[in-house]
Design a protein around this nucleic acid. Structure first.
Lengths: 135, 135
DNA sequence: ATAAACCTTGGAGTATAGTCTAGAGTCAAG
DNA sequence: CTTGACTCTAGACTATACTCCAAGGTTTAT
């Protein structure tokens, strides 16, 4: 069991952020000490690390909340709902993957190609690099 | 040459957003009509589309601004600076790629595996699916 | 046993990225 | 030649996601 400061430094977020996430339902307070101190478990560590990752790739806290609440019980209705929601997110994620790959390549082009090489000057900006690979 | 409304609907952003980006130096006003209407060129279309993409994968407008301002002239100093900055961004982008792949796989697991299959119930949440692939 | 370091709540403040409104001018179609 | 759709500026407002502060209680190290 971890206290808030311990979880915070473990997860690389601030104590305030953890309390903020709790207030918004992203982490569920498990337990408190007699004096009211929050106590966190390994599950919370996982949740926070998921939240941080998902946020970094562009999901809002609201979307993350929905993702965390998903739970497929094996009856068909819940399955249908979850599948629809999740497949939607997969589409978004795939688009983001393509975009991030494109940006990565153009960054790479920018980093590699323009240092004393004889590439045309058009390649030596991010937009130039982006266009280069579009060809 | 496009008027603001035309560029806006082409790029899928609002007119206000375009003016906002201009105010913050992300797009440079090229030209105005005599009556003061903004006129945009193809270069602006590219810039906006870059901004939108970069934003979607988690860059802030500030970072995007810096990326757009990068321009390697072939002297060594500018090269050094740009390379450092860009390589930094590439590291970040690579981390994001890994994270987004991980999330994608767990979404896929969630979508595929839990609909009437005989997987354990632990796999039927996003965290369960994430852990599954960690093994 | 007392100071430093931690925790609590509630509420105010901040940064980012828009979004909306008002009041006025411009342009194209009927 | 006026109506409707568009544009302009400046400034107020909003949502999201924190971040900080005050005033107080708790724990731990010396």
């Amino acid at each position: 069991m971890l206290k808030i400061g311990e979880l915070a430094s473990l997860a690389g977020v601030s104590r305030d952020t953890l309390r903020f996430y709790e207030k918004h339902g992203l982490i569920i307070p498990n337990q408190r000490t007699e004096s009211g101190y929050r106590l966190y478990s390994n599950i919370d560590v996982e949740r926070i690390s998921f939240i941080v990752s998902a946020k970094e790739v562009g999901f809002t806290l609201n979307e993350i909340h929905q993702l965390l609440e998903l739970e497929v019980t094996k009856d068909k209705k819940s399955c249908q709902d979850v599948k629809e929601f999740v497949d939607n997110k997969i589409t978004i994620v795939n688009q983001r993957l393509l975009e991030i790959e494109k940006i990565k390549h153009s960054l790479q082009t920018l980093s590699d190609a323009c240092c004393g090489g004889d590439e045309p000057a058009t390649q030596c900006t991010i937009l130039g690099a982006l266009n280069e690979q579009a060809r």
